[in-house]
Design a binder for these strands. Sequence first.
RNA 1: GCCCUUGUAGCUUAAUGGAUAAAGUGCCUGUCUUCGGAACAGGUGAUGGGGGUUCGAUUCCCUCCAAGGGCGCCA
Length: 611
Amino acid sequence: MKDAIQSLLISVLSEMGVTDVVPDVTIAEDSRFGEYTTNVALKLAKSLKKSPMDIALQVKELIEKQKMAGSQRDHDQNINKIDQKYSGITGIQRLLQDIDHIDVVAPGFCNVSLTEASLSNRVHQVLKDRESYGKSQTLVPLELKGEADPNAKRIMVEFAHPNTHKAFHIGHLRNITTGESLVRLLEATGHEVIRANYQGDVGMHIAKCLWAMKNLPECDPASVRGKDIHERVEFLGKAYAAGSTRYEADEAVKSATGAINKQIYAKDSAIYPLYQETRAWSLEYFTAIYKRVNSHYDRFYFESEFYELGKKYVTDGVTKGIFEESDGAIIFPGEKYGLHNRVFITKEQNATYEGKEIGLGRVQFDEYHPGLIMHVVGPEQAGYFQVLFAALAHVFPDTKGKEYHKVYGWVKLKHGKMSSRTGQVVLGEWLLDEAKKSIYEILKQSKSNYTEEDQEEIAEKGAIAAVKYAFLRVGTDQEISFDLKESVSFDGDSGPYLLYTYARCKSVLRKAQSDTSNAKGSEAENEAMHPEERALLRLISFYPEVVADAARNLSPNTLCTYLFRLASAFNLLYQKYPIVGSTERINLTDAAAQVLHNGLYLLGIQTAERM
RNA sequence: GCCCUUGUAGCUUAAUGGAUAAAGUGCCUGUCUUCGGAACAGGUGAUGGGGGUUCGAUUCCCUCCAAGGGCGCCA
């Protein structure tokens, strides 16, 4: 619809002699301003040397003239275009039918209001398309910063990437939640997505953990062998923190840890079996987490796979003049390109993180041929990625413009700093479990009778929804300030509120179905549409455009805002008018539930029929 | 020292350069409590300071203040 209005405006503007301007059309947040609004008149005032109001009035007049002509023609030819798409001339004619009127408002906005019939058609569209409502077959181009290709169709989204032997904290949870939603949004807008997960399973952090296990009696792995996976993983987190602390404090520990690091790379039998055993613990745990939060991956990459390969490409790059030797290490001279220098191979001849990623990049492109690789990673690595992408483009020119750093903000503790190094972390599962406990409390106070299975399902789904929504409702690259006491909310703008509204819709629909009295559809249809009904209707009709915008801007939070408004609009309608008994309102409820379901899916949140 | 990011109601957050800066939460007041009260309505309350560009600035530029991050052998 937005595109159709834009084409209409372009044709109108060309009548006015303006051909070099693409008018902005946006959804009107406030229904007083109609459904769609444009500010072309304000933009054109200067170049046309006319007042914005005059231009706006002229636009309105030209559109109304076309509308009159069009309706006359339709009447003459009796053309039925109900199922035609908006394209070409017929699209504009159809659009003209859907436009009820245009208001011109100071300082010069043109506000387009659609007919009730046109909005009602959308409800039938939802009930026909069901789960596919809102998905776009055509590719929605992305708004990307920098030089990355916005028209890539095949996109690898690389997210989650936890490190083995380290705690899985709420930051990782936000990363997975963000990545999962981005994947689904891209899939819904014509992209082909490869889900990748690059997990760190070698490096100094692991050496620190293993040093502790080898040297500290309280970190003896024998104490947790055979125990529950949660206990084993908690143990690893503690061992890492202990190893880290000693590493900082003691030079001897430092060099001993360095030696262990070498042994790991060399697969030395003195350490390798323990390394493999404990690595497997972490991976077992990750698998469980991915399942719990409803995420999965097409390809798991491991740092250990790219140690040799990365080193080879970087070494080759030295002879080509891409990398340079400096103080015994091999660096990429980023300073030559307005960036900063970074070490890719240490003087110990180990590939660093950046060195390994040269190998990773090659393999990713060879395996999947993506048009874009999106790395969902924290903001602190912005400088790192700039240098890495520049180096990659020099080593492999085919990767130029195909690498992208999608920033997701930190989850910061409101009081104190989170660090897995010191062991002060909020674990991801701790948060999920706390949320779950709170929901059990609410269920206990409820008058409804739930079976134990029901309770378990509701609490689990509700907890995941609460946590995921709390992360996603904030702008992706914004930091989140996290308070342990009021970490997730269950009312107001929250995941559970949306689930509750969905369940409420479903309950009403069940009631309507079992209601044997004759539906008074015809009566309701004769009533004038209430403002609350129209408000819900217009929101439902906006959904596909909201999805496209959220995908284009890689911003699930805009979808969150929309879904909350939709749920509020339904609840208000529900509060004021009986649903059961009116076919119109039952359909509206059905459509609202469907849109809630589809939207929550794109956030990675599952709905429940009852709550 | 150099570079980057962020400062919006008491708190947590929205707002492709647009209309009266939008919500949740908190506090105050109500509705309903026969389709599911994890509900609905009303009130309260904000753009860090100072300049500039613009018809119009939370948004862009400069500066000051404050917080966070990055800057060669970690990942």
